[in-house]
């Protein structure tokens, strides 16, 4: 499984995004991170060809949240056959926006001295959860009431290995903030908020039902003015709470 970082959100283990056989010997694996407000794409490039690779560059297609490289792809020396290099590519969210299907799809082009290669990957939405995503309590209540019921989506998260306290602190390290907490008939109810880099707010009610001593069942209700993000926010909750 992946690793949590000291001051950042959950980081998935690197996955192969471009197999060598599809890219004339260039293999790319990677993952996404968010640490203290900085998003990066952490890449591992391996040369499985018989010739040296040079002149690397990377470009993203337009995407739903304007993710774009914030610097050129820096491969400091030619990549020899069988050599691997690790690169952290800083990203920003001020690139061109085009709604993708699925919403978190990212199309990438990488070039080197041999050719240009293309691949697609999906990024976890929690890399877009900003540090100032804690909504004021009064604003939360007003917004919760204001967002119509048809914009509410409900999800189940079964067998979560954390209690209410740990759930709240784990989520906070990924910029999902608990605005209020209540206990009703033995269930903890957390009211939470998060904000995406493009300013979209998501409000959540997380109902925590004690299961057996080591697991809890969670019911997540999400309210958002852009309800197409809810499915991806739910996936972020699952990932953060189960890893």
């Amino acid at each position: 499984s992946g690793v949590g970082t000291l001051s950042g959100s959950y980081v998935a283990p690197k996955a192969i995004w471009l197999p060598a056989m599809k890219a004339k010997g260039l293999e790319i694996s990677g993952t996404f991170t968010r640490q203290v407000g900085s998003i990066s794409m952490d890449l591992q490039l391996t040369n499985k060809a018989l010739q040296v690779m040079t002149d690397f560059a990377i470009q993203f297609n337009r995407n739903s949240f304007g993710l774009a490289p914030a610097a050129p792809l820096q491969v400091h020396a030619p990549l020899s056959p069988n050599q691997t290099v690790e690169i952290s590519l800083p990203l920003n969210t001020v690139g061109s926006v085009m709604k993708m299907e699925p919403l978190n799809n990212l199309q990438v082009a990488v070039k080197n001295n041999i050719d240009v290669f293309y691949f697609s990957t999906l990024y976890p939405l929690h890399i877009l959860f900003v540090e100032d995503g804690k909504m004021d309590r009064q604003m939360f209540l007003a917004t919760w009431k204001d967002i119509p019921n048809e914009n509410e989506a409900q999800f189940q998260i079964r067998d979560c290995p954390l209690n209410a306290e740990a759930v709240s602190s784990r989520l906070q390290s990924s910029n999902i903030f608990t605005v209020a907490k209540r206990n009703v008939e033995g269930q903890d109810m957390l009211y939470q908020s998060l904000k995406l880099t493009n300013g979209i707010w998501v409000l959540a009610e997380l109902r925590i039902q004690p299961g057996n001593p080591s697991f809890t069942h969670l019911q997540l209700s999400l309210k958002c003015r852009a309800p197409e993000v809810s499915q991806h926010v739910y996936q972020a909750y699952e990932t953060i709470l189960k890893n």
């Binding site: 009064q138 209020a180 209540r182 109810m189």
Partner: peptide, 20 residues
């Protein structure tokens, strides 16, 4: 502590969601 009524409002919200 100044009671701004918000504590009570959250209690009512949680209550209404549990017993609609």
């Amino acid at each position: 502590e100044l009671d701004d009524g918000l504590d009570e409002a959250f209690s009512r919200l949680a209550q209404s969601r549990t017993n609609p």
